[in-house]
């Protein structure tokens, strides 16, 4: 599904990704984990073409990333921090994006009621709380029914109710055949959601395999302990 080969990215003198190789299978939930600054977000931004990488290849389905932008119509992206034009209201942002992506069907209405946002839609985004913005962010990522979902710390800042709503949604998306890529620092969440884990360390993949396998290999009782043991 997604094939990454020898991916290199540096910011000035700082080498963030060092010839990283990885594969992401279709219809799985893959978690990218690693300590702060290990390159998780950079890797995601390379997939989206937001960051221009310095070397290597990325193939998504049969498409080789080369600066053409059409492939992004198959990707829904939820960035770590929701950044919107501050003067607009949530419903204006949704209308604008639907307008700019001609021909894509939208399920925005359904998602708005799912995330219980009906009352917040007409308020300017700058007045909304962090968690509410994060939900708007999730709607923008999900509303075009994309084949691939890329979620960068999706539950950060969400209250427990919204967080479980979002996690249910993620599992439902997988059940309907989607491929999901997720980053998180909450290991219990990853254990709950993810099939596969990509552990990033020093710009390379340190571990790549099913979550259960990692836990079994280390003989620990949960993912957090397993990773702690692997690191020591």
């Amino acid at each position: 599904m997604i094939n990454i080969k020898g991916l290199k990215k540096r910011f000035g003198r700082l080498e963030v990704l060092k010839e990283l190789d990885a594969q992401i299978q279709e219809n799985t939930i893959t978690a990218i984990v690693g300590h702060n600054g290990s390159g998780k977000t950079t890797l995601i931004k390379c997939l989206l073409g937001l960051d221009k990488y310095d070397g290597g290849d990325i193939n998504i389905k049969d498409f080789k990333l080369n600066g053409d932008w059409n492939y992004r119509s198959q990707i829904g992206y939820m960035p770590q921090v929701a950044r919107f034009p501050e003067n607009l209201t949530a419903s204006e942002v949704i209308t604008m994006i639907s307008d700019l992506r001609i021909g894509s069907s939208t399920q925005a209405e359904e998602l708005i009621s799912y995330f219980r946002l009906v009352d917040e839609m007409e308020k300017p985004l700058k007045t909304l709380s962090g968690g509410t913005r994060q939900k708007v962010n999730a709607i923008v990522a999900l509303m075009f029914n994309p084949d691939i979902l890329i979620l960068d710390e999706p539950t950060a800042g969400l209250d427990p109710v919204s967080s479980s709503l979002l996690k249910d949604k993620i599992q439902a998306e997988k059940a309907s055949g989607k491929t999901v890529i997720i980053t998180s620092h909450i290991m219990s969440e990853i254990q709950e959601l993810a099939d596969t884990i990509l552990y990033l360390l020093d710009g390379k993949i340190f571990f790549d395999g099913p979550v259960n396998e990692l836990i079994a290999q280390t003989g620990e009782k949960n993912l957090e302990r397993a990773i702690a043991k692997m690191m020591s």
Binding site: L50, W69, Y71, R72, F84, P85, V93, R101
Partner: peptide, 16 residues
Amino acid sequence: NSREFMELLLSQPISR
């Protein structure tokens, strides 16, 4: 000031 607008649109299928 358009930075947010750019980040939002560049993750959509829109050319630079």
